[in-house]
């Protein structure tokens, strides 16, 4: 089971680096997109109206509506895109961890981490079907 007979209790630097990169880029990217959406809202002058009272389209709830909203340059959809990226950041973190554990040949943790990713994926399907 022990591939290289290593006594190192912590996963290697490679795992840590990809995990850090996934987390950082996700947060920075989403914060930037949220700010862009808010800037678009100000630019459109919608701040003088009530949101959600017909002045702007309702915020998208699924990726199809989100894509349509983005195509129409709807600020609410841009903000939502930022939020979706933020929600996706932990997903990405788990996904890159699978690769990182595979590179380490730590197959047990490849399986464990895949289970976590599977549960996260199932949560999206459940939200859709029961929502």
């Amino acid at each position: 089971m022990e591939p290289r007979g290593s006594r190192d209790a912590n996963p290697s630097r490679a795992v840590e680096k990809v995990v850090i990169l996934a987390l950082r880029s996700g947060v920075v990217l989403s914060a930037a997109i949220i700010c862009l959406g808010l800037a678009m809202l100000i630019a459109k002058g919608i701040f003088s109206n009530q949101i959600g009272s017909g002045a702007t389209p309702l915020p998208p709830r699924d990726l199809g509506a989100l894509a349509a909203g983005l195509g129409a340059f709807d600020p609410g959809s841009v903000v939502t895109l930022g939020l979706v990226i933020l929600i996706a950041t932990p997903f990405a973190r788990v996904a890159v961890s699978i690769l990182a554990f595979a590179l380490e040949r730590d197959w047990r943790y490849v399986v464990i981490t895949s289970i976590v990713l599977g549960i996260l994926g199932a949560s999206l399907a459940l939200g859709k079907s029961l929502g």
């Binding site: 709830r61 979706v84 929600i87 950041t89 932990p90 996260l120 949560s123 939200g127 929502g131």
Partner: peptide, 9 residues
Amino acid sequence: AASAGIYFS
């Protein structure tokens, strides 16, 4: 994230 996905959808 596991519950945020549900809240979102």
